[in-house]
């Protein structure tokens, strides 16, 4: 998918739920997740935004991490969704639908006037 240029701050607001969603199917390490977000057309998320999100989610108990040796390089930290993360994700998905519908209606009203 081609990437679109998004205003600064948009990705930051939705990064946490996106990471939970990406990790719901399979565990992954940081750089891999950045790659998947880019493939999904959300642009290149810099490491400086990515890792604080992952650390926060881990701290909140929504993810667990496991260190493994990299291919000759430095070790890799693999993140995995916890049951708490799974239910947080479900909650986010519901909230997002609601939020997106409301934003769409506000934006629509703005265009009409």
């Amino acid at each position: 998918m081609s990437n679109i240029q998004l205003p600064v701050g948009w990705i930051r607001g939705v990064l946490d739920p996106c990471l939970l969603a990406l990790l719901s199917s399979a565990e992954a390490y940081g750089y891999e997740l950045a790659g998947r977000l880019e493939q999904a057309g959300l642009g290149r998320v810099p490491g400086g935004s990515l890792y604080p999100s992952l650390l926060r989610l881990e701290k909140q108990g929504l993810l667990v991490a496991d260190w493994r040796a990299g291919d000759g390089g430095p070790g890799r930290k693999y993140y995995q969704l916890t049951p708490a993360g799974q239910s947080a994700l479900c909650e986010h998905v519901g909230l997002w639908d609601e939020f997106a519908a409301r934003v769409t209606s506000v934006l629509g009203a703005g265009v009409e006037s």
């Binding site: 390490y29 940081g30 950045a34 490491g47 990515l50 890792y51 890799r76």
Partner: peptide, 10 residues
């Protein structure tokens, strides 16, 4: 280590 790993791949 995580930052380093990211940089070496990116």
């Amino acid at each position: 280590v995580e930052t380093e790993g990211f940089l070496s791949e990116a």
